[in-house]
């Protein structure tokens, strides 16, 4: 009997913990920050950053802007946007400046890429 009660309480509290993490916490912290932008909007955000970087060459400012999208790795944000632009068929000029930004970010804040020595 004790074992049955233990299992029932465990299952109930486990469900309660999952529900709190999946339902209550996201509701308390609405997903309305730049980090939650849809993929195409994120790519455009990075494109704007790339346009500014192409003009002023300020990689630190570029990294700060990209941290709004990905606080952990601005380089990842740049690389993903460059990949998205290629996939979605952005104009070549846009793809080029996105790649320039991604390369500069990779040199400035390098991350390990698959196949990279």
């Amino acid at each position: 009997m004790r074992r049955l009660i233990f299992v029932l309480v465990l299952l109930f509290s486990l469900s309660a913990g999952l529900a709190f993490g999946w339902l209550a916490l996201p509701a308390l912290r609405p997903a309305s920050s730049l980090a939650n932008l849809r993929e195409d909007y994120r790519a455009d955000y990075v494109l704007m950053t790339a346009e500014i970087f192409a003009a002023d060459g300020d990689i630190q400012a570029g990294a700060d802007r990209l941290r709004e999208l990905d606080a952990q790795s601005p380089t990842t944000a740049a690389l993903l946007a460059a990949a998205y632009a290629r996939q979605a068929g952005y104009p070549e000029t846009d793809q080029a400046i996105l790649m320039d930004l991604a390369r500069a970010m990779q040199a400035y804040l390098p991350i390990e890429l698959d196949g990279t020595p």
Partner: peptide, 24 residues
């Protein structure tokens, strides 16, 4: 049982299977 269940449930929802925020 309650403490273990809550802790495991919370950790699972935040770290193992985190909910993906809606794209906006």
């Amino acid at each position: 049982a309650a403490v273990v269940g809550l802790t495991v449930g919370l950790l699972a929802s935040l770290a193992v299977w985190p909910v993906r925020p809606a794209a906006i």
